[in-house]
Each structure stands twice: as C-alpha cells, then as structure tokens.
Measured scan of single mutants.
Amino acid sequence: LSDEDFKAVFGMTRSAFANLPLWKQQNLKKEKGLF
C-alpha cells in the first residue's frame, strides 16, 4: 500500500499504526481483510 492508501484504509499514518500494540495491528488488518 502507498502511504496515501494506508491512511485511507486505516485512518492513521504508518507511524501511528506502528506504535499500536501488535495484537491491535493484527485485529485492524483482519477487519480490513488484509490478512
């Protein structure tokens, strides 16, 4: 994903996403069907 796409899908920047706990990152990915 480009940075723009990433922001559109997750509603946050990559750095904000990277600061989330791993389980939360994985839950978000599953919610968005990216897993």
Score class of each variant (00 low, 15 high):
D3Q: 14
G33C: 14
V9T: 12
Q26L: 06
K29L: 10
K7E: 11
A8E: 10
A16E: 14
E31W: 04
R14H: 15
F35I: 14
R14C: 02
K29E: 15
N27S: 13
L22M: 12
K29A: 11
S15G: 09
G33Q: 11
F6K: 00
N27T: 08
K29T: 04
L22W: 10
D5C: 07
E31T: 07
R14Q: 08
F10H: 01
K30Y: 08
G11Q: 05
L22G: 13
F35W: 15
Q26Y: 06
K29M: 10
G11P: 01
A8C: 03
W23V: 12
L1I: 13
F6D: 04
K24F: 08
K7N: 05
K7A: 09
K7H: 08
Q26M: 11
Q25S: 03
N19R: 12
K24W: 08
K30D: 09
V9R: 11
F6P: 03
R14A: 06
G11F: 04
S2P: 01
F6Y: 09
R14Y: 02
K7T: 09
S2C: 07
F10S: 04
F17H: 05
N27I: 04
W23Q: 15
L34V: 12
A8H: 10
S15T: 09
E31L: 05
D5S: 14
R14I: 02
F6Q: 00
K32V: 07
F17G: 03
L34G: 15
R14S: 05
L22H: 14
S15I: 10
L34R: 08
Q26C: 13
P21Q: 02
L34C: 09
P21L: 00
L20S: 02
K32W: 03
D5E: 14
D3P: 15
S15R: 06
E4W: 14
T13S: 14
K32C: 06
T13P: 08
F10P: 01
A8T: 11
D5W: 06
R14P: 09
K32R: 11
A16L: 05
F6E: 01
A16P: 01
S15A: 05
N19W: 03
K30S: 06
Q26F: 13
Q25R: 05
P21S: 05
L34D: 11
F35K: 14
F10C: 03
S2I: 10
E4K: 15
F17W: 04
D3Y: 05
N19T: 11
Q25A: 04
K24G: 03
L22Y: 12
W23Y: 15
L28P: 01
K29P: 08
G33W: 05
Q26P: 01
G11N: 06
T13D: 14
L34K: 10
G11D: 04
P21A: 03
T13C: 07
F35L: 15
G11A: 07
A8G: 07
D5V: 02
D3K: 14
T13A: 09
M12I: 10
R14K: 07
F35H: 09
N27R: 11
E31S: 11
E4P: 12
P21D: 02
K24D: 13
N19C: 14
P21W: 00
L1G: 08
M12C: 10
Q26T: 13
E4T: 15
W23H: 15
K32I: 05
W23N: 15
A16G: 08
K32T: 08
M12H: 07
F17V: 01
F17Q: 01
K7G: 05
E31C: 04
K30A: 12
K30E: 11
D3I: 10
L20M: 08
N27E: 13
E4Q: 15
M12P: 01
R14L: 03
K32Q: 08
F35R: 11
A18T: 12
K30M: 11
D5L: 05
L1M: 14
G11E: 07
A16D: 12
L1T: 02
E31A: 10
G33A: 12
N19G: 12
F6R: 01
Q26D: 14
F35S: 15
R14T: 05
L1V: 08
K30T: 09
Q25V: 03
K30L: 06
A8N: 12
K24S: 06
S2N: 15
L28G: 01
D5N: 14
T13E: 15
D3M: 12
P21E: 04
S2K: 08
S15Q: 12
F6L: 03
E4Y: 15
M12Y: 04
F10G: 02
F10E: 04
G11S: 04
K24R: 11
K24A: 10
A16M: 11
T13L: 02
Q25T: 01
E4V: 05
A16F: 05
M12E: 03
F35E: 15
S15Y: 05
K7M: 10
G11Y: 00
K24M: 12
